[in-house]
Design a protein around this nucleic acid. Structure first.
Length: 605
RNA sequence: GGCCCCGUAGCUCAGUUGGAUAGAGCAGCAGCCUUCUAAGCUGAAGGUCGGAGGUUCGAAUCCUCCCGGGGUCGCCA
């Protein structure tokens, strides 16, 4: 939860300075009033020799102001030169304004890092707005397999990131416990129940779940009910068996998620939407899905009609028939979508509309769903439904995570669902470790396919970026542990040590390697903000890699040049300054790793 | 065939929401361990950003059309 509203980070402060200067130019009549300042950016320049920051302000404003970019830039640069944060200004290229900040600015920022500890980078971006993030939502028909793992880690990290950025996050799991699949689950479990009672069940018939993981369900049913269920007709045993099976599957899934360090606040049952509600208004349908459809019908968004057959190769079993349709085309979808199956029951889409309406009713105007790539074709209709059901007030961002190809030393790992020999999430976590799984899943944009090579992740651990980043953190901790030989009064606890180090003579941090690290630290809040705004946690992973890389590089310089090492035995003043930098790096690495849900180890032995 | 995603160094991928001379890792080449952990570092080499048009001061990024790969296509979830 956001404690105090953090003071704006360096880039935000400089951006404010730029805007102020532009406004002053408007007031002075040097620019027309009312310009759109929203496209002005302040960012690190690609080439560090250009300075600390660059702004595109002059180029962005040139058109509306009907002036040449260079002309605006010169004027703006002159005004910025007197800004207390800024040391030097230069106009370059087509109209970039390159800014060099006073060295003290970066040193002050290090003090901020030290004071904030793991909270550095936390922001009020979300302004306390509630946001619902739904992820995993795997069918409760078996243990989780590797395919689920990417969405789980992605959703979890995204939720962490949004929480850190000032949103009030609810992490949600939608349990598909109402469809035909859980009935199949129940039938499969019933077979295992008969098996547990000593019957010979032979081969598991096609269409049922063959996995051994249902044996404990059969045994649980046998010990609870004896052979009583055998005497009941299917309509009576099925709900009993289904309920036990779903409960046990969800327990297994919860364990798998815990092994991955993924958590949820709300587990929402689909069945709770279709279950008949007690009495009430007799004119209303008895269930939530029906009520949602009726609400849409009253709004003129549901009708009985026919759909054109799919274009291209016509499916063999296509049958032109009238059905209940939602006007998703009113909201940008390609075709209207059916809400009821031919047997009269609701489609998955229908209950999904009711489900998202429930989120809206619970106060979420911002929703994020994390889906697998195979559901990509479903996005438009869901967004259409959210727009319809909320009257355009709610937004749904669907993050699609692409396929994970599981390999072992370059060879695809065979998985056959029918034979039940798919690789479970647990097996992968046990084999390569939670941290490696999580980091690898996040060290890639969510919409790019990911090759996950088990052999590479463990055997050639050098190639694995997670160890690289963790090693950076461990190295920093190692320095702090060893620092006592030069600074005998250095406190042990991180907080008091940070306080102690903040008083160091930070201006002694003059070496280019140190300066680069200082600037890299100062970028962290900006990276967090961008990652949160774009819903892209992978940016954190890449930033951490860059930071660790700069640390390792600077560290190794100390091999050749001992005077660059962090600990200088006969110079406690510079040692303290450098330790302050190390403490800052350690803080940010730990903070970022925490967002990704990855351990920040004290050592790598 | 319609829709969605992807195409960037030999391989795996970034690219700061349109910015300056497109960057890392791995593989290969040339080097660095008497050290606060070499699980590390330094250097050289490697590119028609799939192709062609267009939008503008400026395009890997936005638009259109092709090419190639993946996903999906009324009643499964």
């Amino acid at each position: 939860m956001p404690t105090e509203s953090a003071s704006p980070h360096i880039f935000a402060r400089v951006l404010a300075s730029v805007r102020t200067a532009v406004s002053a130019m408007e007031t002075a009549g040097e620019l027309p009033a009312g310009l759109d300042l929203s496209r002005i950016l302040v960012e690190p320049p690609r080439d560090p020799t250009h300075g600390d920051m660059a702004t595109n302000a002059a180029m962005v404003l040139a058109k509306d102001a009907a002036k040449k970019p260079r002309e605006i830039a010169d004027n703006l640069a002159a005004r910025l030169a007197s800004d207390p944060l800024i040391e030097a200004v230069a106009v370059a290229g087509p109209g970039f304004i390159n800014l060099t900040l006073k060295p003290g600015v970066w040193l002050d920022e290090l003090k901020t890092v030290l004071a904030a500890g793991l909270e550095y980078g936390r922001s009020g971006l979300g302004a306390g707005e509630p946001i619902n993030v739904e992820y995993v939502s795997a069918n409760p028909t078996g243990p989780m397999h590797v395919g689920h793992c990417r969405g789980a880690v992605f959703g979890d990290a995204l939720a962490n990131l949004l929480d850190f950025s000032g949103y009030r996050v609810t992490r949600e799991y939608y349990i598909n416990d109402a469809g035909a699949q859980v009935d199949v689950l129940a039938s499969s479990a019933f077979l295992r129940y008969r098996e547990a009672l000593g019957q010979d069940i032979g081969e598991i018939p096609d269409g049922l779940y063959p996995g051994d993981y249902l044996k404990p369900v059969g045994e649980a049913l046998a010990s609870e009910h004896g052979d009583k269920l055998l005497k009941l007709p299917e309509a009576e045993w099925l709900p009993v068996v289904r309920s036990v099976a779903v409960t046990m599957m969800m327990a297994a899934i919860a364990e798998d998620l815990a092994a991955l360090n993924v958590r949820h606040d709300v587990f929402f049952s689909e069945r709770s939407l279709t279950a008949a509600k007690s009495a009430g208004d007799a004119n209303l349908p008895a269930d939530e899905v029906g009520r949602t459809i009726e609400g849409l019908r009253e709004a003129g968004l549901v009708y009985e009609g026919r759909l054109p057959p799919p274009k291209g190769a016509p499916p063999e079993d296509w049958e032109d028939r009238e059905q209940t349709l939602f006007r998703s085309t009113d909201f940008g979808d390609d075709v209207d979508r059916p809400l009821k199956k031919s047997d009269g029951s609701y489609t998955y889409f229908a209950s999904d509309i009711a489900y998202h309406k429930s989120k809206i009713d619970r106060g979420f105007c911002d929703m994020i769903d994390v889906w697998g790539a195979d559901h990509g074709g479903y996005i438009k209709r869901m967004q259409a439904a959210v727009a319809a059901v909320s009257g355009g007030k709610a937004t749904l961002d669907v993050k699609v995570v692409q396929l994970v190809r599981l390999l072992r030393a370059g060879v695809p790992v065979k998985m056959s669902k029918r034979a039940g020999d798919f690789v479970t999430l647990r097996e992968v976590v046990d084999e390569v470790g939670r941290d490696a799984v999580r980091f690898m899943m996040l060290y890639r944009k969510n919409d790019a396919v990911l090759d996950f090579d088990l052999a590479k992740v463990i055997e050639q651990s050098r190639e694995n970026p997670v160890f690289y980043v963790q090693y950076g953190h461990a190295r920093g901790q190692s320095v702090l542990r060893n620092a006592k030989e030069a600074l005998s009064d250095l406190p042990d606890t991180p907080e008091s040590r940070a306080k102690y180090l903040a008083k160091a003579a930070l201006e002694r941090l003059e070496h280019p390697g140190e300066r680069a690290l200082l600037k890299r630290l100062g970028q962290y809040p900006r990276v967090v903000e961008a990652a949160a705004a774009s819903h892209e946690p992978h940016r954190i992973a890449f930033y951490l890699y860059d930071l660790a890389s700069e640390l390792h590089g600077h560290w190794t310089q100390g091999n050749q040049a001992p005077h660059l090492r962090f600990i200088i035995l006969d110079d406690p003043t510079i040692t303290a300054a450098r330790l302050a930098l190390v403490q800052g790096i350690v803080n940010v690495l730990a903070s970022g790793l925490a967002l990704l849900g990855v351990e920040a180890p004290q050592e790598m032995r």
